[in-house]
Amino acid sequence: MISLRNLSKYYSAGALKTYVLRNITLEINEGEFVSIMGPSGSGKSTLLHIMGMLDEASEGEYLFLDKPVHKFSEKQRSELHKDHIGFVFQSYHLIDELTVYENIETPLLYQSVKKDERKSMVADILDRFNIVAKKDLFPHQLSGGQQQLVGIARAVISRPKVIFADEPTGNLNSAQGKEIMELFTLLNKQGTTIVQVTHSESNAEYGGRIISLLDGWLQS
């Protein structure tokens, strides 16, 4: 499903190019649960953002569902992103002025899902994630773990093919982290591809495959 060929990313400061990702060739299949690991600054987030179409590679090719993303315009990319990709962040990034319910509903608004359908989809997710009681609260009224649950609920509501998660448990204690990981495993079993960045060996264990980065190089 995701296919990277000789992909590189650099930032130029004047004439100087600083490579963050170098010559990455990588294949991720539908239904996989992949963990990306590596020291701080090794380029994990950058790689995730490129795969999630929030950022562009400097060189190389990227095929998503056999479509040449590297040739796409920003608009085409964001269409693709909107239809197939969910994102989960370390710092949750919920929208402060929206309630739990509204946060989860927002992606559906952007996809012009009809009102009744939206209602049932959100109700369904709230139920599955066991947060029905919290639906009218605002993010600041929730614990970190609860916020991340909402963040994941928001990512999966539009039934994406793949979820990218950047250190989803980074701000959580281990019990909360475990709960999130179990949720990912469940979603993966139901067919969603999952790519997560993590610093924790035990979290990485939940995935089927571990990809290691060092100074922008893929370690195999």
Partner: peptide, 13 residues
């Protein structure tokens, strides 16, 4: 900006 960035990642044009 944060809010807008987040909205974009969840599919806002």
């Amino acid at each position: 900006a944060r809010e807008i960035g987040v909205r974009k990642t969840i599919g806002a044009t």
